[in-house]
């Protein structure tokens, strides 16, 4: 564990806490894409299958349970909670995320570290996470004004993977046989997708203005 990875995990956890805070405090999920939340739940379920088979550390197990539990709770909330689901931007959240799932699964069958069920699922979860944020970014562009908590949520979500890239660079130079090229390439794509959001987020912070994404 290095400082980049720990900061990355804490940033990821913070993004989930901000999202939970927004939904709980405002009883609203406006500006949040249910499709992105469903994709993230799928990412965690596909990636953490080894939760009960390979024990890495207490930290690892606890964080996996938190990520799986929170992503499922958010999806449940946005689908079932009568107050919350009323504020869901159903007509704006129309990105066909099933194509993302199919595409990532096909890619995982072709490109993986080893053609074994756990490895294919792991690669699938890595590729899917890289594109999971697309429905959310599309929704933000369509909904124009972004409330603070939603903006912070998306910013933290993008920042965590950027910190993971620093972690991979650090591990590459410090560990002899370290190779995570699948996660690295997908992580670069994932972070690049946030590039324009980061730009407008920085502008809104610099000008102390409301976050506006050009539609």
């Amino acid at each position: 564990m290095n400082v980049f990875r720990l900061t990355g995990d804490m940033t990821h956890l913070a993004s989930i806490l901000v999202l939970l805070l927004k939904i709980y405090a405002t009883k609203s999920c406006s500006g949040i894409s249910l499709k992105t939340q469903e994709l993230y739940a799928l990412v965690f379920l596909a990636r953490y299958l080894n939760l009960f088979t390979d024990f890495i550390s207490v930290y690892n197990t606890v964080m996996k349970l938190v990520f799986i539990g929170s992503s499922l709770a958010i999806v449940w909330c946005m689908r079932m909670h009568k107050m919350v689901k009323r504020s869901y931007d159903q007509e704006l959240d129309t990105f066909r995320h099933y194509f993302l799932i199919a595409g990532c699964f096909l890619l995982a069958l072709l490109v993986n570290e080893k053609f074994m069920f756990p490895e294919v699922l792991w690669a699938f979860s890595i590729y899917l996470e890289a594109v999971s944020t697309i429905p959310q970014l599309v929704l933000l562009q369509r909904s124009g004004n972004v409330d603070n908590l939603t903006g912070q949520y998306v910013f933290l979500l993008g920042a965590y993977r950027a910190l993971y890239i620093l972690n991979w660079i650090y591990r590459y130079f410090t560990e002899p046989h370290f190779s995570r090229w699948i996660a690295c390439v997908a992580g670069l794509v994932q972070t690049a997708l946030y590039a324009d959001f980061f730009y407008y987020y920085f502008l809104s912070w610099k000008n102390n203005a409301k976050l506006q994404l050009p539609s």
Partner: peptide, 10 residues
């Protein structure tokens, strides 16, 4: 070998 690297990251 690299493919057996335990997935120690989240």
């Amino acid at each position: 070998t690299s493919s057996e690297t335990t997935k120690d990251e989240l």
